[in-house]
Design a protein around this nucleic acid. Structure first.
Lengths: 231, 231
DNA sequence: ACAAAAGTGTTGAGAGTACACCCATGC
DNA sequence: GCATGGGTGTACTCTCAACACTTTTGT
């Protein structure tokens, strides 16, 4: 069944249910989201959050994982249910309820499929978005609020970085998401005293003094997953 | 259309969507939730969170408000979307996705309709629940976690009390929800310095010294509503 | 006068904030 | 040797936690 057919085949009083996945990453020193240009009515040519109908035999999270993999080729990334949007006229064709998810993928997460069709699938700065279809502006606004919020009391910020990273890279990631600059000494003390990262023993060389590389501690990863509010 | 019909009339690949409303209140010095005994299969005789199908022309929040009023006769109470539960087999009959809400009503909120049918609609202690239908145990567990969590950084606790209240009543409400006792002096200092309540000038008399009555400040009420994460 | 609940201050520990210079490497 | 980014410590403020007695009323 094509997605368009769903709007034609039923008059039983049941709504349609979709998942939409806000995919955040860091690119070029900027917080970006993956959007898709719509090819079909309504809102042709406008940009939309990747999403689609849930299948009857999959959970909501499985649907979100499936959509995420279709667009990015990635699995096993941070994924969290955000909110369910269900205004009766958010889609002009039919009653469509969407369960919004947020995914956070590492800066180096090579996203091959996203560039297959660069005209219609691309990354956008969260601070400079194109016109958006449906209520997707609301969804993105909510996702950004939640991401910033969780950055302060969970370790979700680490999901934006590759497995090994320097403290400066971590601090820069925080600064980009929060949209404010942080004090280097205080940031380092706070992160290190939290005991959630450990040095790998390796160094990253480049211009200037080599920087010590860190990784998240295994048990800290477990703790982050536990903080996903549900399940 | 009766609720049972919905399970018979469609084979179009669309799920059913319900709202379930976890209604919290304080009764007899205990944190309680309103539950309904199921009269129809599945899970006959087990207890369930009040809920029902959304109508095509109402928002999700309107559906939750409607369900809340049907069961309690109350409007204009604190209501917040919690999480959407959508395991494919959470209802054995059909694919049913439920958007869970949490309502918090004052201890004195006279709930007339809840006692119309005291056999099948009653309050239960959150700490001593009967066998629950569907995944309603998970939903209640999540709701309690969220309520405790928000108690610490929002003013949702005030929703459990009538318009005027004493500081001891407020502290007791916090202690009941959190399941731990709090220091009287620290609690009072923290609440008063937050500047969200003000004395009414009246006193409650009873045994012992009369207690000063407080109310939430109007602008604090606005702030609480703003803290509902969405919309 | 006494029972019952309301109300009130101080101290110590830890967390957060502000702030400026030296260090190790590549070229 | 100099440009580049990495790495470090201290003092002040504020918040949080622990802790016990006095005040006001009704009977």
């Amino acid at each position: 069944m094509s997605s368009t057919d769903r709007f034609l085949t039923c008059d039983c009083g049941r709504p349609l249910v979709t998942v939409d996945v806000v995919i955040f990453t860091l690119r070029h020193g900027d917080l970006q989201v993956l959007l898709i240009r719509r090819q079909h009515p309504p809102f042709v040519g406008m940009w939309a959050i990747p999403g689609g109908f849930i299948r009857l035999e999959e959970t909501l999270e499985e649907a979100a994982i499936r959509k995420l993999e279709e667009k990015t080729g990635l699995r096993d990334v941070y994924l969290e249910q955000l909110f369910t949007f269900g205004h009766p006229r958010r889609d002009p064709r039919d009653r469509v309820i969407t369960v919004a998810y947020m995914a956070v993928i590492p800066a180096t997460g090579v996203v091959s499929r996203a560039t297959d069709d660069a005209e219609n699938v691309r990354w956008w700065s969260i601070y400079d978005l194109p016109p958006l279809a449906f209520d997707h502006g609301d969804i993105l606004h909510y996702a950004l609020t939640r991401l910033r919020y969780k950055l302060e009391y969970t370790a979700v910020g680490f999901e934006l970085l590759p497995e090994q990273f320097t403290l400066t890279e971590l601090q820069t990631a925080y600064e980009i998401v929060l949209g404010e600059s942080l004090d280097k000494r205080n940031f380092r003390r706070k992160i290190l005293s939290a005991g959630i990262i450990e040095p790998t023993g390796r160094y990253r060389t480049g211009e200037g003094r080599p920087a010590k590389l860190y990784r998240y501690r295994e048990d800290a990863v477990a703790e982050v997953k536990a903080r996903r509010l549900f399940p």
